[in-house]
Design a protein around this nucleic acid. Sequence first.
DNA 1: TAGGTGATTGTTTTT
DNA 2: CAATCACCTA
Length: 820
Amino acid sequence: MDDDWAVPADDLTPAQRAAVEHFEGPLLVLAGPGSGKTRVITRRIARLIERGVRPWEILAITFTNKAAREMAERVQSLLPGSRIWVSTFHRFCSRILRERGAAVGLQPNFSIFDTGDQQQLIKQVLHDLDFDASHFPPGKLLHRISQAKNELLTPENYALRYGEGIGTHLEAVVAKIYPLYQKRLLEANAVDFDDLLVHVAILLNDNDGLRNELDERYRFILVDEYQDTNKAQYQIVAALSQIQPNLCATGDPDQSIYGWRGARIENILRFEQDFPEVKSIRLEDNFRSTPEILKTADALIANNIHRKAKRLQTGNASGEPVEMRLYRDGQDEATGIANEIRALVEAGERQWKDFAVFYRVNSLSRTLETAFARLKIPFQVAGGVAFFERMEVKDLLSYLRLIENPLDRIAFLRVVNTPTRGIGKSSLERLTRWAASTGTSLLDAARQPGQVPDLPKKAAVQLRAFASLIDEFTDLMIGSRNSPRDEESLLDHEDVEELSEEGHAAVGLIERLLRAILQRTGYASQFTDDRDEVALARLSNIEELVSAARLYDVQESATEGGPTLTGFLETASLAQDIDSLDEATGAVTLMTLHAAKGLEFPVVYIIAVEQNLIPHERSLRENDPRQLEEERRLLFVGITRAEEKLVLTHTQRREMHGRSLSTIPSDFMHELIVTRKDHTGVDEFQFGDDTSSEFHDPDHDSIDQSSDLHHSEPAYERYPSVSDFSQKRKKTKGSLGIPGLEGLNLTTGAALQAGTNDAVELPKGFSVGMQVRHPRYGLGTVVDVSGMSRRRTLTVEFEVGDRRESFVESKCPLQPVGLR
DNA sequence: TAGGTGATTGTTTTT
DNA sequence: CAATCACCTA
């Protein structure tokens, strides 16, 4: 959707123009998919500025960082020099809290705890309260606490509502855990994701002065994706729109897909009651998709009962029918899609970046990734194992966190013995206990280990050394801040040389700090000894983190505040999966349906349209029609991302947790207007040499069973039996335990998995000289085999890049080439 | 104390 | 199949 800013307002529809031109007072824009909502918002902001509103009086909230960045750029390019602040709710709240958090007990350098940090913290709390973590899974407790926070329930109020004897057993436990959890967060000068919103909501609620000040300051507020705001976000927006009710909410109830994390679709539905003076505008013309795609989207969403009916119309030219394909299994599905994409690109019809593949759960990306890699198709994956959550990245970030916020006990415990310094579990236990009893922070306790009873001498020495190390880093940070161009004594020769080779670019604050940490802790050398895949991946992640730091340094040095540790850590904490996506990159995009919101692609595949995935098993459990409707909306969002071509797929069998299970078609299948194609009779090649022209176009063999299967059966009467999942698992489990099989190395673990119910497959039996293929490194030759049994190790020389790698046979993703 | 092993466990989606 | 965890040994 390219905006042509040169054209004034005559490229807008009447409805769009009305939204752009509306000046003061509340405005609700109900925007169907592809109706030019983003363009309306940017235009509107520009128009406000034209009318004399100061850029800093405008607050624009988007759903993603990426959208925020793009929106700021668009406004900038429309009205050069007008910098407006666009951000996500979480980022906005974080900024408020850095400035005004004292009232809720936060210092400006507070840490933001991610899910992993929360888990650690809740485990400590359970430990301290003598609860058994195995009986009260931390994840469940955290979920409850999160729900409570989303409802703005403080620990006290939660206890009042759900305390002993009032709620369920679990709730009673949460009522005990939650207060201490919250106390520990504040003691660590930290917040979790929910707190960012909750603290601000409470701040605004309790502090009229602050509320009025900010209300006046943000005269015009625009909130996108309003259908996905939760109670806290609602309250924040409402609090800032009292004196100046110039609130513009945009969104689409049919695209509300975050109910599970507290989003309230009602917020948008009742906007008109909340702001009686509201001007409401509906954008119903779709400029994105073909009529075929729109028709199937409309047919699907029409099955939602709790919904305001809406027209979806387009003047776009007719295109291909929407396809519903059946494959045999996930492998075939992935290979089939990969082959088709490759063929279309090679025929010159499409570019790689025209394609996107969506799936319901992240785990479905793996098969796709492997197939794409094998067929040498460039692709990018949104999310998956997020970069900032990788172990080595988190370790290094934890050093930074501890430097920034010495009270951050989670960060302390993470790095105090990383890399190992001989500070063991029991020493830390003693340290922690003493610190708690004296009210000392862990880092301060480590500075005076002599005070801690029963601490082994070695541990005491090491703790003191660790504390001085952190002090060193802190000095470095302060020093750098004051004189960023000083020569760094902590940098070793290599770094200095590297620097001078790169010219005179001064190393920025964060990069300098990271390099110092790496150098002084020897962190990276843990991985430099090994030459295995994992170690290499870790090293490259470290590299990537340093690059990210450098990028941040460079970008921020242009701003008034310059780079700060807080800023960098915040960027890392609030990073989103899709931030890293790059439209310009010539690659196919893989992502979850949730991540797809707000995006568009010429060709879209949605895979695994199967019962228990779409709709997801967990949304069927409680037999709650509202949850089912959210699943339907999720599929609706996916479908409406497609511009020209849409292919939905499902399979007969699907691998889950290493088991192959037969699938049930999605209930939504019958609600869609699609052309069905059967690809199960087709032999998709698996290990073929892809230099040959063995490509098999499935379409030529496929049977067009029927077109337009549009049943009108209501879906809600046919909930599936979910239980057979676990039953099947138990049944097959026993057959795997064939005694001695693995020890004799008759076969690999992977082959065993594949051949469970039928005959055990032949062993892979790699031998020297054999041609093999690796999903990432490509073709290679086995040059050495050593070790026995499960230690059996292969060394492979790859054709590309002079690469030589070793793998443990039972674990490596190598495939023999030329075997069937 | 560290590192490895075996066993058990789980599990949507994300800030 | 992972990731995590409790336990075991050097």
